[in-house]
Amino acid sequence: MGNTVILLVEDNPDDEALMLRAFKKSNIQNEIVVARDGVEALDYLFGTGSYANRDLDYMPQLILLDLKLPKIDGLEVLEQLRGDQRTRHLPVVVLTSSREQEDLMAAYQNGANSYVRKPVDFVEFMQAVTQLGLYWLVLNEPPPARKG
C-alpha cells in the first residue's frame, strides 16, 4: 500500500478540494499527500523538515505539481527532484492553470513527464483527472523502486 501515494503539490485549497473530489469521483483510492508549497513538497520527497522521519524507501507513485507555488515554485521543485538520484525517475505531471508556452517548455525541459492544464469547467477537469489516474496509476509501468 505504501507505494500508492500520490503527492499533490497545490497551494490553492479550492483546487485541492476539487482535486480530491475528482479523485474520489473517479474512484482513485490512492493515499493523497498534499504539499502546500515547494518547500513542503521537497521536505516530503527528501525526508527533511516536518517529514524528517519519513521512510524514504517509499516514494509517491505520481507527483501532481502546480507551477505557481509559494516559497519555491514548481519548476524549481521539478529541477531539484530530477537532480536527485532518489527522485530522478518519479513520474511528474505538471498540473497548472498556465497556458504560457514558456511554462510548457520549461516544464518539459526540467523533465516533466506530462503537462496538463486545469480546465475551468469541472466536468472537463474531472475527465482530465480520471484519465490521468487511469494512465499514470494503472497503465503506466513505473521504474523499479529502490527497495523490492
Binding site: 490553492n12 507551477l67 492553470s97 469541472f122
Partner: peptide, 22 residues
C-alpha cells in the same frame, strides 16, 4: 500580467464552477 491572468484568474473560476457543480 498575462501569466498571472492565465494562472490566477482561472483558479477562482475553476472553484466557482467546481463547487457549483458539487
Amino acid at each position: 500580467f498575462g501569466y498571472s491572468v492565465s494562472h490566477d484568474l482561472r483558479a477562482p473560476l475553476r472553484g466557482i464552477d467546481g463547487f457549483s457543480l458539487a
